[in-house]
Design a protein around this nucleic acid. Structure first.
Ligand SMILES: [Zn+2]
Ligand SMILES: [Zn+2]
Ligand SMILES: [Zn+2]
Ligand SMILES: [Zn+2]
Lengths: 156, 156
DNA sequence: AGAGAGTCCGTTATAACATATCAATCCCGG
DNA sequence: CCGGGATTGATATGTTATAACGGACTCTCT
């Protein structure tokens, strides 16, 4: 799994691909990909950066899609629950999933300088830590792995 | 490194040891371990659970040690900066360090049922994930590893 | 002693993030 | 057409965190 986000790429294509994959996924699963939900995903997709709920809200409001916090939080809950977006705990913010369609346990690389967020694979972290948890009798239900630091561009 | 928190242990001793280690550490480093700061650490030490700033505040207020949010946040910042406590991002809460004095990169096992938090070693997670970050050109400055699940007692 | 710097603390106000609740609407199968 | 489930609208509130300013104390240098 690559760490999309720090690599330069055709981002318009990246957006289009993700949206069509999301459409297909929701159709398959019988999920209602409503205008609010779709637009929130589009807004998140604009950049590979995390956005707070209150960053998203004004855009939604301008477009007449709802102007109160619950509207955006409900949409974000839907996206997160269905794997279309992820919540970044370190930032209290949300980001579109960069690996839509592929089952994955995300880990995040967060640049403290430019705020870009790349998505990597947390399975890579599980090995010995998973063993340690098992030895402690702990049942892992959710892993949060977030690495803060400097992306290649900002380190240079 | 053991995962203190889920094991039964002499907790009064656990508290006393940690406080005296903290006293010694602050003396060595020339840090001012003021009454507010010490009391906040004591409050955190009462249980191996994470507490929010606003859980701590009333106790402080009752004792005349400050009744406004900045008081407790400043104390928590001090404790976290100096390694005497850790912030749990998943819970927006704080916990006393269970491995005071030993250099460590903590990972947390958080029971969603009883809210106990155990501290394990995040180095265990670094191996292949660290490689992946390096390949992406990402410089890790801070790791947040938090595992939510069920502790042995609650799983039974 | 007095001036200046540094650190900590008290206080007010506000920012930022998130949810509870209830009513209205839409949509689809029976 | 009707009923139930999901979604949305709207108001209010709850929770977490910081900005900003001034006062108290201590230490140091002159
Ligand atoms: Zn892209
Ligand atoms: Zn960067
Ligand atoms: Zn620790
Ligand atoms: Zn438990």
């Amino acid at each position: 799994m690559s760490t999309i986000g720090f690599h330069s790429h055709n981002h318009d294509q990246c957006i289009a691909d993700t949206l069509s994959t999301a459409d297909a996924h929701c159709a398959e699963e019988g999920l209602q990909f409503t205008p609010v939900r779709r637009r929130v995903l589009e807004i998140l997709l604009a950049e590979h950066k995390a956005m707070g709920a209150y960053d998203i809200l004004p855009t939604l409001a301008d477009e007449g899609l709802g102007s109160q916090p619950p509207v955006v939080y409900r949409a974000l809950d839907f996206l997160v629950k269905n794997g279309l977006a992820h919540r970044i705990e370190l930032l209290n913010a949300y980001i579109a999933c960069a690996h839509l369609g592929r089952a994955h346990r995300p880990a995040f690389l967060i640049c403290r300088e430019c705020k870009l967020v790349a998505e990597a694979d947390a399975e890579l972290a599980r090995g010995r830590l998973g063993e340690a948890a098992r030895e402690a009798g702990f049942t892992i239900e959710r892993m949060v792995v977030e690495l803060e630091g400097l992306c290649p561009a900002c380190a240079a």
